[in-house]
């Protein structure tokens, strides 16, 4: 069945994308982590009561600005944002895969999932 073969090829591409995404983000988190270890002496008391991480580290533009300035925390956060974006990329790629095969049911399903993920990333 050509349908199943196409499914399998799409799955393999998606698996590769996930792997690249997760290792790229782990490398960025690792780099930020090394810098963080070099710059911080003590940290734990901060985490026992919840204040929320400081504002620039909560949004993508703020994280990008910090990472460009090589701030350790912003670099770690950039790696985590790349990690969060990886499943989104997977869904977008499967959306294109279904569009190319004119599979409208699954194009719709992928579109809904993409919309929910983007809304979660952008909205509060």
């Amino acid at each position: 069945m050509p349908d199943k073969a196409a499914d399998h090829r799409l799955e393999q591409t998606l698996g590769r994308v996930l792997q690249i995404g997760v290792f790229t983000s782990a490398a960025v988190v690792g780099l930020g982590g090394v810098l963080l270890l070099a710059s911080r002496a003590y940290v734990t008391p901060l985490l026992t009561s919840f204040t929320g991480v400081r504002a620039p580290l909560r949004s993508v533009p703020g994280i990008l600005r910090g990472a460009a300035a090589f701030q350790p925390e912003a670099l770690v956060q950039l790696g985590l944002v790349l990690l969060i974006a990886t499943p989104l990329l997977r869904v977008v790629l499967s959306l294109f895969g279904f569009i190319r095969r004119r599979d409208w049911i699954y194009t719709t399903a992928s579109l809904i999932v993409t919309g929910v993920l983007v809304a979660g990333l952008i909205g509060r």
């Binding site: 991480v53 956060q77 985590l80 989104l88 509060r124």
Partner: peptide, 25 residues
């Protein structure tokens, strides 16, 4: 699981739940 977690991770990031010093290790 990754896609499901992605849906809420953006919201948690915006609320300041994701603390880099803790999430890194």
């Amino acid at each position: 699981i990754g896609v499901t977690a992605c849906a809420s991770a953006g919201i948690y990031l915006g609320r300041g739940y994701i603390e880099p010093a803790l999430a890194m290790p």
